[in-house]
Computed example of a mutant assay.
Amino acid sequence: MQTNILRPFVIQGFIGVIALSVFAYYGHPLSSLYGVIIGLANVAMLAFTFERANKKAALDPKGGILVLYMSAVIRFVLLAVLFVIGLALLKLEPMPMVVTFVLMTIGQMFNLQGKRRLTD
Rank of each mutant, 00 (worst) to 15 (best):
A57N: 13
V36Y: 02
A47K: 11
I11M: 03
S31M: 06
F14N: 01
G13W: 04
S71A: 14
T119G: 09
G16P: 02
V81Q: 06
P61I: 04
A41Y: 02
L46D: 01
E51H: 15
A58D: 08
E51C: 05
G86N: 01
I18T: 03
Y25T: 07
I106S: 03
L40T: 09
V84Y: 09
G107E: 06
A53F: 00
M95D: 13
L89Q: 14
R7M: 10
L103H: 02
R117F: 13
D120V: 09
L89M: 12
E51V: 13
Y34G: 07
V43T: 14
G27Q: 04
L90R: 13
L112G: 00
G64V: 09
M97R: 07
N42M: 11
D120C: 11
Y26T: 14
L78I: 07
R75S: 11
I18E: 05
L66S: 11
Q108Y: 15
G35C: 08
G86V: 05
L103Y: 01
T100E: 13
V10N: 03
R52M: 09
R7C: 05
G86S: 07
M70I: 07
V43P: 10
V81C: 07
V36C: 13
I106N: 08
M109F: 12
S31K: 12
S31G: 15
F9D: 04
S32Q: 04
Y25S: 06
L118G: 02
P8D: 10
F9M: 01
S31L: 09
P61H: 08
S21G: 15
V73T: 08
I11G: 04
D120E: 15
I65Q: 07
H28F: 14
L90C: 08
L103S: 06
F83R: 02
N111W: 12
L103K: 11
K91R: 15
V36G: 06
L6P: 05
M97Q: 06
L87P: 01
G27C: 10
F101N: 13
K115C: 11
G64I: 13
V17D: 07
V102E: 01
L40F: 12
Y26S: 12
I15F: 12
N54I: 00
V36W: 03
F110P: 08
K115A: 04
V98N: 05
Y26N: 05
M109V: 12
Q2D: 14
F83V: 02
M109H: 00
A47W: 02
G16A: 10
S31E: 01
G63C: 08
T105H: 03
R75D: 04
K55R: 15
F101G: 03
H28E: 14
V102L: 05
A47Y: 05
V99Q: 05
L82F: 12
A47H: 11
G64T: 02
Q12V: 11
L20W: 14
P96V: 15
T100N: 05
G107V: 08
